[in-house]
């Protein structure tokens, strides 16, 4: 079954079938091509459109004149089709292409992935679903506002710190409106307060000792990491919602693209461009981009 599903020709046939069915389902496949039938549904549709535009119900006369105009349109429309006036008309072309696009869009939004498909997607994209590394640590700040050689002073202090008690050590830095202690905090939350430069340096540090100096956008820090949990892959259950959302986003785009591709295969596309105004390099770039992508 899986093999059949992957067969592009089948897709094409099925796409054709879908559109054919849709077309017949909407009731335009009348037996007699020259019959024009105005039914109750048509009248109701006219009335509701009128109400939308004018915020009131049309009078009988108005209704009759709208129907007259509609029949007139229908007659001319049918005659025009017989004379093939629709061929190569820019507006009709654009409109029909829009209709196809919107059908494709409807199909792509009907996707409802199974648990299995989601898991497969999750396994293929594990790197997108890490649980953040978390850290419990103390930081001591050395302020460029308050010290001339803040970095040097931090380095000098470091050598003596590991003999000092934690509590005493913490009094040796400069106060700043940032937490001195972070308890089991994720990289995401550390970055929100300390900036990404600081956070990026934590992962290389050992635990249970004062280390540094580490620079941030604020100045220089010494840190004492109590415990750390490195980056891991999240469990499927914990990220299922995000997986679903990513899956749908990707699939919808893929389906749209693959439908277009299937259709496009039926046509040979040739670029007959001989004016030197367009360089060969440009033409070949365009070919690659449009045909091979």
């Amino acid at each position: 079954m899986k093999k059949i599903i992957q067969e592009p020709l089948l897709h094409f046939i099925l796409i054709g079938a879908v559109f054919f069915l849709l077309y017949s389902y909407t009731g335009h496949n009348s037996e007699n091509k020259d019959a024009i039938i105005i039914d109750t549904q048509d009248l109701e549709e006219i009335i509701s459109k009128f109400e939308m535009q004018w915020s009131r119900t049309p009078t009988e006369d108005e209704l009759i004149s709208i129907v007259t105009a509609k029949i007139e349109d229908e007659v001319f429309y049918k005659e025009a089709l017989k004379m093939k006036l629709d061929s190569n008309d820019e507006i009709i072309k654009r409109r029909l292409s829009q209709k196809m696009k919107s059908l494709t869009k409807d199909i792509s939004t009907a996707i409802q992935p199974s648990e299995e498909e989601l898991k497969e997607f999750f396994n293929e994209n594990l790197e997108k679903y890490p649980t953040d590394a978390t850290y419990s640590f103390y930081q001591m700040f050395f302020s460029p506002d308050k010290r001339k050689e803040w970095k040097k002073e931090a380095t000098q202090l470091l050598s003596t710190l590991n003999k000092t008690s934690l509590k005493e050590a913490l009094t040796m830095g400069d106060p700043i409106a940032l937490p001195q202690h972070f308890n089991k905090t994720t990289e995401f939350h550390i970055s929100r307060q300390m900036g990404s430069e600081f956070t990026a340096q934590l992962k290389d540090l050992k635990t249970q000792q004062w280390l540094g100096p580490i620079d941030s956008g604020f100045g220089t820090h010494l840190v004492f990491i109590e415990t750390m949990e490195t980056k891991k892959t999240a469990s499927f259950e914990s990220v299922k919602e995000k997986v679903t959302s990513d899956y749908l986003y990707q699939k919808q785009n893929q389906v749209k693209a693959s439908i277009l591709k299937e259709f496009q295969k039926k046509y040979s596309i040739t670029f007959a461009i001989d004016n030197p105004k367009f360089s060969e390099a440009f033409v070949s770039k365009m070919k690659t981009k449009i045909i091979e992508d």
Binding site: L14, V239, V255, K261
Partner: peptide, 25 residues
């Protein structure tokens, strides 16, 4: 049925542009 077939069709993997900073829990 056709829709179901359509959406399971495999397409080439696009180069993955999204760098997701996932913090999902």
């Amino acid at each position: 049925i056709s829709v179901a077939v359509l959406i399971s069709c495999k397409t080439e993997k696009k180069s993955e542009q999204n760098i997701i900073h996932s913090n999902t829990h």
